[in-house]
Amino acid sequence: MKRLLGVCTLAATLALAGCSQVAAVAPVGGNHLTEVRFATIDVLQQKGVALEEVPTCTRASDGAISCAGTTADGAAVTAVSPAADPDGFTVTVGSDTVFTGSVSAVIDQAAGVAP
C-alpha cells in the first residue's frame, strides 16, 4: 500500500475537474468494512458459533456496513454497523442478537489489551 485516507476529500475535489489520474488518488478501501468483519468474526469465535460461510461485508453508499454469513447448521449470521456510529455494531445469529457494542473494543480485547 499504503493509504492516503485524508486525501479522499481532496481527491474528490480535484476529480471534479474530470481528471481520471487525480480521481485515482483515493483511499485504499475497506478499513471500516474490514474492522467490522474482523470484530464480527471475533465475536462469533468467542461465542463458539461454528460457521459454514464466514461473514463477508459490503459498504452502502452512506458508509454503513452490512455483513452476512451462515452457521454450520444453516442459520443466517448478520452484522451491521451504521454510518452514523461506525464504532458500533450488532451481530445476529438467526433471530437472536448475540452482540451489540464497540468494534474497537472487540478488536482491542482480541489483541490482548488489558481492560
Partner: peptide, 10 residues
C-alpha cells in the same frame, strides 16, 4: 490502526 491488522482467528 495497528491492532486490527492482525485479522480475526479465521
Amino acid at each position: 490502526t495497528p491492532l486490527m491488522r492482525r485479522g480475526s482467528p479465521l
